[in-house]
Computed example of a mutant assay.
Amino acid sequence: MELIRGLHNLRPEHQGCVATIGNFDGVHLGHQVVLRQVKTKAQELNLPSVVVVFEPQPREFFAGSQAPARLTRFRDKVERLAEQGIDRVVCLPFNRRLASLSAQAFIEQVLIRGLGVRYLVVGDDFRFGCDRSGDFNLLKRSGDEHDFDVVNTETYEVGAERVSSTRLRQVLADANFVLASQLLGEPYQISGRVIHGRKLGRQLGVPTANLSLKDKQPALQGVYTVLLTGDDGVVRMGVANIGNRPTVDGVRPALEVHLFDFKGDLYGQRVRVVFCCKLRDEIRFSDVSALRTQIEQDLQTARGYFEEQDMGSGQPVPLAHNALRL
């Protein structure tokens, strides 16, 4: 799959495609239905399939910290789009210049001159352009004028409700990881490279693997049982804290994972962390001693959780056979 960053990197050979536009945050089953729709038409017309995304996502640009939580980091999103068989991802930097484009200018610069789109798949509630002035009807009229087709996206339901990023955020906030897995088609996970932190976990006797969340507000907040896979492909059990770490004056969202009985070194490795069960919310403790006591309780509870799974009682750990691919 080809990743193109910015309109300026589009070349004449990129003209002509079947495309869709959106955030595709999570690349859940609803998105996957749309992607299959795009791929099927692309194969029929013998054209490449293209997904146009934005970074940051538009609501992140306008709302900042008040924007909805990010379900999928950009790299994970691109990887999942590649796994779906998409030929090309065009990532447009969402900045003031793009935000100020009129709807008609967006059509001309992005769809016609940039992509030479032949067939476009979008929702009938899709809005675009400055002040969200463009809509499905404008796209249809432009398609008639410039000889490209515009059709509705197909919807997908689980449990008689439409699968959407908004619904998935709520399911994760409720820590319903079984349903989240059903909406995604695989367990909910976060991947990233293990970086050096402040070594506070080591000082507390619980060394952690730290993953930066790139200042993106995560969809999860709290302490969870997790499964982690690193470069060696081994699945390891542990406990993760995801949030701002208020007791130690954390200022940026971070994911910290403590692995049971692990003595190795994960620095620099790209790991995947699958979330299994929520233990508690993230809270501010009166002092580090109180935090250490709670961590010990968390570790004991987490070990009990995994022991129950091994014995076959309770809900199974929500893993698919290919859930931890690297």
Rank of each mutant, 00 (worst) to 15 (best):
Y156E: 03
L184A: 04
G197V: 10
V194T: 09
R167A: 01
L183G: 07
R169Y: 09
A160H: 14
G185D: 06
V151H: 01
L168I: 10
F148S: 07
A160I: 01
E157V: 12
G159T: 04
V163C: 05
E157W: 10
H196Q: 14
V158S: 01
V171M: 08
V163L: 02
P187M: 03
N176R: 14
R198S: 11
F148L: 07
V171K: 08
E157N: 14
L172G: 12
I195W: 10
E186P: 00
V194W: 13
A175E: 05
R169E: 14
F177C: 06
S181I: 00
A180S: 08
E161I: 00
N152A: 13
S181M: 12
E157R: 14
V151G: 00
K199F: 01
N152V: 06
Q189P: 00
H196W: 05
L179R: 12
R169I: 10
Y156G: 00
E161M: 06
N176F: 03
D149G: 00
R193T: 15
Q182G: 02
G185P: 04
H196G: 09
G192K: 05
N176S: 08
A180Y: 01
E157C: 15
V163R: 02
Q182R: 15
G197S: 06
T166W: 08
T153P: 02
R162Y: 00
L168K: 07
T155H: 11
E154N: 11
R167T: 03
V171E: 03
V194E: 13
S165W: 05
H196E: 13
D149T: 15
K199Y: 04
P187C: 04
G197R: 05
V178N: 11
L179M: 12
T153N: 09
G197I: 08
S165Y: 05
G185Y: 10
E154H: 13
G192W: 09
Q170I: 05
G197H: 04
L179G: 06
E161V: 02
R193H: 11
R198L: 12
S165G: 04
N152E: 13
L183Q: 05
D174L: 09
I190Y: 02
Q182E: 15
L183T: 08
A175I: 08
L172P: 10
I190G: 04
Q189M: 13
N176G: 05
Q182P: 03
L179E: 13
V171C: 12
R167F: 00
P187W: 02
L172I: 10
G197A: 08
L184Q: 05
V171Y: 06
R162L: 13
S191E: 14
A180Q: 02
L172M: 12
Q170H: 15
Q189W: 08
V158E: 03
L168V: 06
A175W: 03
I195R: 15
I195S: 11
G192Q: 08
V171R: 07
H146L: 03
E161R: 12
I195T: 11
R198A: 14
I190L: 15
N176Y: 02
E157F: 15
S191Y: 00
F177Q: 09
R167E: 01
R198Y: 09
L168R: 07
A180K: 09
R167S: 03
Q182W: 06
Y156I: 00
T166C: 03
A175M: 07
R198M: 10
T153Q: 14
T153R: 11
I190N: 03
E157G: 06
V158L: 02
D149I: 15
T153S: 14
H196T: 12
